[in-house]
Design a protein around this nucleic acid. Structure first.
Lengths: 146, 146
DNA sequence: CGTTCTAGTTGTATAGTACAACTTGAGTGA
DNA sequence: TCACTCAAGTTGTACTATACAACTAGAACG
């Protein structure tokens, strides 16, 4: 096997390990906000509100899954639903102030954890690693882990 | 914000994106072998057999989780348990031929996906990216995404 | 020996997910 | 206008992955 092929295999394996760990630890780190909830909240902030169907499509989740996630987030007071006056089937989801606050908090704490984990990395390596990750995620979608 | 801090933030964001995408797609790609099972099988092949406890420690899984996963894999005929003659508490897990075959199949298909995604990367970058990921995952546990 | 440690299993509970059946509202063609 | 079809969400149900706690069985060491 060439060095490139073996590197691809390593990348595949390590990304897989990371994905599994991320999910497991997200729950422990932030019992109030699972990785999915965090992601959905982030999406709502980014888009400044959207429909449940959009979330389902964007994250390849079943609409029932999104429905229950949103219901939980609403129960927790982190999002609110506003019925679209144009189409009464549609509920436009918005972050509440509390939701915005928790999202910011979790983002901070996640960032702190990453920072600690990467504390002894030389800056040059951090920058290069970050660039590789961006390049990977920005790459042609659909075939990798998308 | 320093370049190092901004790099940390990028790493956090991109890793999160990756994790979310991987989670969404892992199950759909290989219905016959979950992400966890695949990872465990891969570990067994790499180490040429190991104990359930080692798997649990290495992947930060509860021993009960590993126990059930292994039981399922054994039921499927993909691994076999050999009681350690030195210590009868220990079961050394080994891939069966069927396990090796399925692992190879799934690895091929996953590798193809990754290879396609990484097709236009210079080998030098692949090797460095792989090294960074290994280093990240091997890093001090508990705080990042471990 | 008995105590304590280790490897693994089993009981129980929870979260996240999918699929299917349903409800409600919107659009559309005769 | 009315019936039919399509779209957005909800709810019933089932399954998987997971953790934690309680347990069994074997080993190690005094």
């Amino acid at each position: 096997m060439s060095a490139a092929e073996s590197a691809v295999e390593t990348i595949q394996r390590e990304m897989t390990i990371f994905a599994r760990r991320a999910r497991a630890s997200a729950g422990r780190m932030h019992p109030e906000l699972s990785l999915v909830s965090y992601t959905l909240l982030g999406h709502l902030e980014e888009r400044d509100g959207c429909r449940a169907t959009d979330l389902a499509a964007h994250y390849a989740l079943d609409k029932s899954t999104v429905s229950r996630q949103v219901a939980a987030l609403e129960r927790a007071g982190l999002v609110e639903r506003r019925v679209d006056p144009e189409d009464h089937r549609v509920q436009v989801l918005h972050l509440t102030d509390a939701g915005r606050e928790i999202l910011a908090q979790v983002t901070d704490s996640r960032r702190a954890a990453f920072r600690e984990r990467l504390a002894d990395w030389p800056q040059e390596d951090l920058v290069r690693f970050a660039a590789y990750l961006e390049r990977y995620n920005a790459g042609p979608g659909g075939t990798g882990s998308d």
